[in-house]
């Protein structure tokens, strides 16, 4: 979907929203940023390393060490309890058992779920589940947190909480990339990248992002 000529730089500590309608190419962009896919042509550098032609295993390693995902559908594994879910990326990263539990508990404490360690995901509310997935994304201390429609399945009050939490994480120095189709959500970010028909039509601060009104 993404056309040629897309150039995008994201710096450490930024809070970027990538916004566009469905079919605009934002999903393709997200997949490439998230190292879930490689571009057919062109380069993608992450932390200075060219990852555009890496094989599956190398990409998995980069996802593990560098990226933290937050999904619209939370994407928790239903058979694992909250703690085990948060531990997963640390497990695949080769972190020892006791260290894994320590880091996971820290991340869960940060999202205020330290008392739900043994609960299964379906015993939690949508907002709580999303907080578990945020904790999971945080646990490995990734360079980039990639949030794909993180509020898509939540009511407005809970959405607010999640967005505030993302802002707080950004204030603490985390790099956050937010992908959304919703302009009002995108405005929460400091910088907005608008995608339309596979091209970047706006890249700048969020205050002026939607001034021209061409959706």
């Amino acid at each position: 979907m993404l056309q040629t000529g897309v150039s995008l730089k994201i710096y450490k500590g930024e809070f970027v929203a990538i916004v566009g309608k469905s079919g605009s190419g934002k999903s393709t962009l997200m997949n490439i940023i998230g190292c879930l896919d490689v571009p057919t042509s062109g380069q993608y550098y992450i932390n200075g390393e060219d990852v555009s032609e890496l094989n599956d295993n190398k990409l998995a390693q980069i996802r593990n060490k560098t990226l933290g995902f937050i999904f619209q559908q939370y994407n928790l594994i239903t058979k694992l309890n909250v703690l085990e879910n948060v531990e997963l990326s640390l497990l695949y990263g080769g972190v020892g058992a006791s260290e894994r539990v320590r880091l996971s508990k820290m991340a869960l404490a940060k999202v205020g779920l330290e008392d739900k360690l043994k609960n299964l995901p379906n015993q939690l509310s949508g907002g709580q589940q999303q907080r578990v997935s945020i904790a999971r994304a945080l646990a490995g201390n990734p360079s980039i947190i990639l949030a794909d429609e993180p509020t898509g399945a939540l009511d407005s009050k809970t959405s607010r909480e999640v967005l505030d939490f993302l802002k707080q994480l950004n204030d603490e120095g985390n790099t956050i990339v937010l992908i959304t189709h919703d302009n009002s959500i995108a405005k929460e970010a400091r910088r907005v990248v608008r995608i339309k028909d596979g091209k970047i039509i706006y890249d700048g601060d969020s205050e002026h992002a939607f001034e021209r009104g061409d959706d």
Binding site: A60, K65, N75, I77, L88
Partner: peptide, 10 residues
């Protein structure tokens, strides 16, 4: 898919 996104290798 979830496991792979979290860094599980083949």
């Amino acid at each position: 898919g979830i496991r792979k996104s979290l860094g599980a290798k083949r």
